Simulated scan of single mutants.
Amino acid sequence: MSNQPAYKFRIGLITATIWENDSFYSVEMSRSYKTNEGEWKSTTSFGHNDLLNVAKCSERAENWISRKTAMTT
Score class of each variant (00 low, 15 high):
M1F: 07
M1C: 04
M1A: 06
M1H: 09
S2V: 09
S2R: 10
N3T: 14
A6R: 04
Y7H: 11
K8T: 11
K8M: 11
K8W: 00
F9G: 02
F9I: 03
F9S: 06
R10T: 14
R10M: 09
I11A: 05
I11M: 10
I11K: 12
G12V: 02
G12N: 08
L13G: 00
I14M: 01
T15G: 03
T15W: 01
A16Q: 00
A16F: 01
I18P: 00
I18S: 00
I18T: 01
W19N: 05
W19V: 00
W19M: 05
E20I: 08
N21K: 12
D22F: 09
D22T: 10
S23M: 11
F24R: 10
Y25Q: 07
S26P: 02
S26L: 06
V27P: 00
V27C: 08
V27K: 01
S30F: 09
S30Q: 14
R31H: 06
R31G: 03
S32T: 05
S32R: 12
S32I: 02
S32G: 05
Y33M: 09
Y33K: 05
Y33R: 04
Y33L: 07
Y33G: 08
K34C: 15
T35N: 07
T35E: 13
N36K: 10
N36I: 07
G38D: 09
G38V: 05
G38R: 06
E39R: 13
E39M: 13
W40S: 10
W40R: 13
S42P: 00
T43S: 15
T44W: 07
T44C: 13
T44P: 03
T44K: 13
S45C: 10
S45K: 14
F46A: 03
F46I: 05
G47R: 10
G47M: 10
H48M: 14
H48T: 10
H48L: 14
H48A: 09
N49Q: 09
N49G: 12
N49M: 08
N49P: 02
D50H: 08
L51M: 14
L51R: 07
L51H: 11
L52P: 01
L52W: 04
L52H: 12
N53G: 04
N53P: 03
V54W: 02
V54R: 04
V54Y: 06
V54E: 01
V54I: 14
A55K: 13
K56H: 10
C57D: 03
C57M: 09
C57F: 05
C57N: 06
C57R: 01
C57E: 02
C57A: 15
S58L: 07
S58A: 14
E59K: 14
R60S: 08
R60Q: 15
R60C: 08
A61N: 04
A61H: 02
E62D: 12
N63S: 12
W64H: 06
I65S: 01
I65F: 03
S66N: 15
S66A: 11
R67Q: 11
R67N: 11
R67G: 03
K68Y: 00
K68Q: 15
K68T: 03
T69S: 10
T69G: 02
A70H: 09
M71K: 15
T72V: 12
T72M: 14
T72R: 11
T73F: 12
T73H: 09
T73N: 12
T73W: 06
